[in-house]
Computed example of a mutant assay.
Amino acid sequence: MKNVLITGSNSFIGTNFEKWLKKYPDKYNVETIDMKNKTWKDKDFSRFDVVFHVAGIAHVSSNHKLRDCYSLK
């Protein structure tokens, strides 16, 4: 059994890939994690065989309140 972690728990690609993997419950144990907050920093990644990183910002916003989401600080 492979342990798979998908980042971007609500992403289009991540959601559909998770559905596909769950068709094979005897082969894959699947978890997802949201990368929008800092809780991912407490996650133990060492127990996963695969980390499928599909988290990202898809659309740039002109809303200044979201500036920190787009900056590389």
Rank of each mutant, 00 (worst) to 15 (best):
K23W: 02
D68I: 08
T7Y: 08
D49P: 03
K41E: 14
K2V: 08
D44N: 10
E31W: 00
T7E: 09
I6G: 00
A55I: 07
K43R: 12
F48V: 04
S71T: 14
F52C: 08
T15A: 03
K73R: 15
S9V: 06
S46R: 10
M1C: 10
N16L: 02
E18C: 08
W40C: 01
Y24N: 09
N16S: 10
F52Y: 07
H64M: 15
E31Q: 12
Y24C: 13
V60D: 14
D44W: 14
H59L: 11
Y70A: 12
L72N: 15
L66G: 14
D68N: 10
L21T: 00
S62R: 15
Y24S: 12
K65R: 12
V30E: 04
G56N: 07
K27Y: 03
V4S: 00
S62N: 15
V30F: 02
K22N: 12
L5E: 02
S9G: 13
K23R: 12
K36E: 06
A58M: 08
W40E: 02
I57N: 05
S71R: 12
A58R: 07
L66F: 08
L21C: 05
K2G: 06
L66R: 13
K2C: 04
I57A: 05
P25T: 05
T39P: 09
I57C: 07
R47D: 04
N3D: 04
D44Q: 15
N16E: 14
K36Q: 11
H53K: 02
K27T: 06
L5M: 09
M35K: 02
F12D: 01
I13S: 01
K36T: 05
N29K: 11
V60I: 13
K22W: 00
A55T: 06
V50H: 13
K41T: 09
D26V: 02
N29G: 04
F52Q: 03
N3P: 05
T32S: 09
M35H: 03
E31V: 05
E18Q: 08
V60S: 14
Y70N: 09
G56C: 04
N37Q: 08
